[in-house]
């Protein structure tokens, strides 16, 4: 298997981007990973026309994969159109993390952040 625990990935999880709480969010959502209990809460501020993510903050507990992927995702979606955001896939998250593939057992960890954001903006 590919070594998923590359140094920068562990760093990303240890020092995540956009980590924290937002004073006055437009949308908030919490999602759990049913298989292990990892949790992520995402808060979002939308652009005035409600078409883009203006700002994002998130907090969570979990494995390196779930936290690092949420961290890179939070950078990617800042300023992104909601329409484009909803089209992001597993492949995009892997790419952001610099990984080629991930084992089946870790797919849910990888996608916890993405699923949380997509659910949030789909409301």
């Amino acid at each position: 298997m590919t070594d998923i625990y590359q140094e920068d990935l562990i760093d990303e999880a240890k020092n995540p981007n956009n980590y924290g709480e937002m004073a006055d969010p437009d949308l908030v959502s919490t999602q759990y990973n049913a298989s292990c209990g990892d949790v992520i809460t995402v808060s979002v501020k939308l652009s005035p026309d409600k078409l883009k993510i203006a700002d994002i903050k998130w907090k969570g507990q979990g494995c390196v994969i779930s936290q690092a992927s949420m961290s890179v995702l939070s950078e990617k979606v800042k300023g992104l159109e909601l329409e484009k955001l909803q089209k992001l896939t597993q492949k995009d998250v892997l790419q952001e993390l610099g990984l080629d593939e991930i084992s089946v057992g870790r797919v849910k960890c990888l996608l916890l952040g993405l699923n949380t954001i997509i659910k949030l903006v789909s409301k």
């Binding site: 292990c36 089946v104 057992g105 870790r106």
Partner: peptide, 17 residues
């Protein structure tokens, strides 16, 4: 299936799915 990270659990999950 589904709740493991180890190789056998991965194989089992893949076979199931």
């Amino acid at each position: 299936v589904h709740r493991g990270v180890h190789t056998l659990s991965d194989e089992s999950t893949t076979i199931f799915e």
